[in-house]
């Protein structure tokens, strides 16, 4: 096979390898730059001398940010929102996916319920009415729930899970049903243990979504003690806001320095980068399952 390769194809393969290496480099450079800045002294960053390696290496910025009480409050908030939100989202998503995966003969009005759910993917209420519902009708703005509820049921994730449940062999459930097991029993003792891979994938999808979210907090929260770390970071990046300034002052500078921003960014993204190599295969499994139709 390789012997038959033409000269043109060999040239192409070399070009292709170079392209791939280039793509990997381009993907990583922004991250490496941030890490380099986080260990550099502000003087060299301002002078535009920090590229991929730290200049004026120091860990002072890390010490300053890590000893900042506020940073930890935000970090703790993010962890709480991620845990509570992911739990709630998994609960709602699994319930809906399981029931909608049942055939028409068992679930009366299946078409209606699927349509009722899927319609929300293509037609949303919009930012302003959503805000009014949260603020005036439900009165949950400025509480944790205004950050947790908006992401608590992704129909897209639900459909992936539904596809998984539909592919489970029905004979197991039927046998258990004949043995007199209730639907709740079947769901808890047979379906959930069989669904570990999809449950892991979905938990990761939701956890990442909650960890990364900032806009809900930006829109619904006023009290800075409730802010997640992403919103703290947003305020830091966009400059002169109360939280940002206070943090910068505590970090030992009048204005927010690039190295403070870099450290905060790195610490926020760190959990994702740390777990990413181990969990990325689950992400891929998830999206593959979703693409399997019929």
């Amino acid at each position: 096979m390789h012997l038959n390769d033409t000269k043109g194809y060999k040239a192409f393969r070399i070009f292709n390898i170079i392209t791939m290496i280039f793509i990997v480099v381009v993907t990583f450079v922004p991250f490496i730059n941030i890490i380099a800045q986080s260990f550099s002294s502000e003087r060299f960053i301002t002078a535009g001398e920090v590229f991929l390696l730290p200049k004026g290496f120091n860990v002072e910025t890390y010490r300053a940010v890590l000893s900042n009480q506020r940073f930890w409050i935000h970090y703790r908030n993010t962890i709480v929102y991620t845990v509570v939100g992911t739990g709630l989202a998994m609960f709602l998503t699994t319930l809906l996916a399981y029931v909608l995966a049942k055939p028409k003969t068992r679930l009366k009005g299946k078409g209606f319920w699927v349509g009722f759910s899927v319609f929300t993917m293509f037609f949303a209420g919009g930012i302003i009415p959503t805000y009014i519902v949260y603020n005036n009708t439900l009165n949950i703005t400025n509480t944790m729930w205004s950050v947790v509820f908006p992401l608590a049921l992704s129909i897209y994730n639900m459909l992936i899970m539904k596809a998984f449940f539909e592919n489970l062999p029905p004979s197991l459930e039927e046998a258990a049903s004949i043995d007199g097991m209730s639907t709740y029993g079947i769901f808890m003792k047979i379906v959930l243990p069989l669904s570990k891979p999809i449950l892991a994938t979905m938990t990761l999808f939701y956890a990442v979504a909650y960890w990364n979210a900032w806009f809900q907090a930006f829109m619904f929260l006023n009290d800075w003690t409730l802010f997640p770390v992403t919103l703290f970071l947003r305020n830091l990046i966009s400059g002169a806001t109360a939280t940002g300034e206070a943090a910068a002052a505590e970090a030992g500078g009048a204005q927010i320095a690039s190295n403070v921003r870099s450290v905060s960014m790195f610490l926020t993204v760190l959990p994702i980068i740390l777990v990413y190599p181990f969990v990325q295969k689950y992400f891929v499994t998830g999206i593959m399952l979703g693409s399997v139709k019929e």
Binding site: W214, I272, F283
Partner: peptide, 12 residues
């Protein structure tokens, strides 16, 4: 490597 950026917060 190529799909790492997809999982990073828009703020970052």
């Amino acid at each position: 490597a190529s799909y790492l950026p997809y999982f990073i917060s828009m703020v970052i």
